Amino acid sequence: MQTLTLRWSHRSHHHERAFAQGQSAVIGRDPACDVSLPADDRTVHRRHAEIIWDGGAPSIRVIGQNGARVDSHAGKLRQGETARLAATDRIRIGASEIEAVYHRATAGPRKLRCHNCNRVQDYAPEGMCVHCGFALASAETVFIQE
């Protein structure tokens, strides 16, 4: 599984949150945001930016009018603009800096998870589950990490 880890600090407290592929995250000064930045930084909007997954890779989309800077992107991102994040990137919003680290999963051996008994077995989609006899044509493909 692919993940994006965000690390940031304020008031000598260090924070870290990991987001799995498909999970979005909101960045802003609202305490309800997934990445909550200092409330006293008025250059940061309550909901300033969001992390989205675009084509299986993480991107940042700017919601707030004050924009954001991303090291791997030339120039300042303006409201409504989106930029794909590099494997290791720095995001600057107001006076805050957020380190973004994108972890791509390496695909291991391909297996099938039976929809009936939920057990994992060797890849053979035309076959039957060796545990319960259920047809594997609709089974979920999974990759085993080595």
Results as ranks from 00 to 15, higher is better:
residue 11 R to Y: 12
residue 12 S to D: 13
residue 13 H to M: 09
residue 13 H to W: 09
residue 14 H to S: 12
residue 14 H to L: 14
residue 14 H to R: 14
residue 15 H to P: 00
residue 16 E to R: 14
residue 17 R to E: 11
residue 20 A to Y: 05
residue 20 A to V: 10
residue 21 Q to E: 15
residue 21 Q to D: 14
residue 21 Q to G: 13
residue 22 G to E: 08
residue 22 G to T: 09
residue 23 Q to S: 15
residue 23 Q to T: 13
residue 26 V to Y: 06
residue 26 V to P: 03
residue 27 I to Q: 00
residue 27 I to F: 04
residue 27 I to H: 06
residue 28 G to D: 06
residue 28 G to S: 04
residue 29 R to H: 10
residue 29 R to P: 03
residue 29 R to S: 15
residue 31 P to V: 12
residue 31 P to N: 02
residue 31 P to G: 12
residue 32 A to T: 14
residue 32 A to W: 00
residue 33 C to G: 06
residue 33 C to Q: 12
residue 34 D to V: 09
residue 34 D to F: 04
residue 35 V to C: 07
residue 35 V to P: 04
residue 36 S to N: 06
residue 37 L to F: 02
residue 37 L to C: 01
residue 37 L to Q: 04
residue 42 R to G: 01
residue 43 T to L: 08
residue 44 V to S: 07
residue 45 H to Q: 10
residue 45 H to R: 08
residue 46 R to M: 12
residue 47 R to F: 14
residue 48 H to Y: 00
residue 48 H to G: 13
residue 49 A to R: 11
residue 50 E to R: 15
residue 51 I to D: 08
residue 51 I to V: 11
residue 51 I to F: 02
residue 53 W to A: 01
residue 53 W to K: 06
residue 54 D to L: 13
residue 55 G to Y: 07
residue 55 G to F: 07
residue 56 G to D: 07
residue 56 G to F: 03
residue 56 G to V: 11
residue 57 A to Y: 05
residue 57 A to Q: 11
residue 57 A to S: 11
residue 58 P to W: 04
residue 60 I to V: 15
residue 61 R to K: 14
residue 61 R to C: 05
residue 63 I to L: 15
residue 63 I to P: 04
residue 64 G to M: 03
residue 65 Q to P: 03
residue 65 Q to Y: 03
residue 65 Q to H: 10
residue 66 N to D: 14
residue 69 R to D: 05
residue 70 V to C: 07
residue 71 D to V: 05
residue 71 D to A: 11
residue 74 A to I: 09
residue 75 G to W: 04
residue 76 K to F: 00
residue 76 K to W: 00
residue 77 L to V: 09
residue 79 Q to R: 14
residue 80 G to A: 14
residue 81 E to R: 08
residue 82 T to S: 06
residue 82 T to D: 01
residue 83 A to K: 08
residue 84 R to M: 09
residue 85 L to N: 12
residue 86 A to M: 07
residue 87 A to L: 10
residue 89 D to P: 07
residue 90 R to W: 05
residue 90 R to C: 10
residue 90 R to F: 12
residue 91 I to L: 11
residue 93 I to L: 01
residue 94 G to S: 08
residue 95 A to F: 06
residue 96 S to A: 15
residue 96 S to R: 02
residue 97 E to M: 12
residue 97 E to S: 10
residue 100 A to D: 04
residue 102 Y to R: 11
residue 103 H to D: 09
residue 104 R to A: 10
residue 104 R to D: 13
residue 105 A to R: 08
residue 105 A to M: 13
residue 105 A to K: 10
residue 106 T to P: 00
residue 106 T to G: 06
residue 108 G to C: 13
residue 108 G to I: 11
residue 110 R to M: 12
residue 111 K to Y: 08
residue 111 K to V: 10
residue 111 K to C: 11
residue 111 K to A: 15
residue 112 L to K: 02
residue 112 L to P: 05
residue 113 R to V: 14
residue 113 R to E: 13
residue 114 C to K: 05
residue 114 C to N: 12
residue 115 H to S: 12
residue 116 N to Y: 08
residue 116 N to D: 13
residue 117 C to H: 08
residue 118 N to F: 06
residue 118 N to V: 10
residue 118 N to L: 15
residue 119 R to T: 02
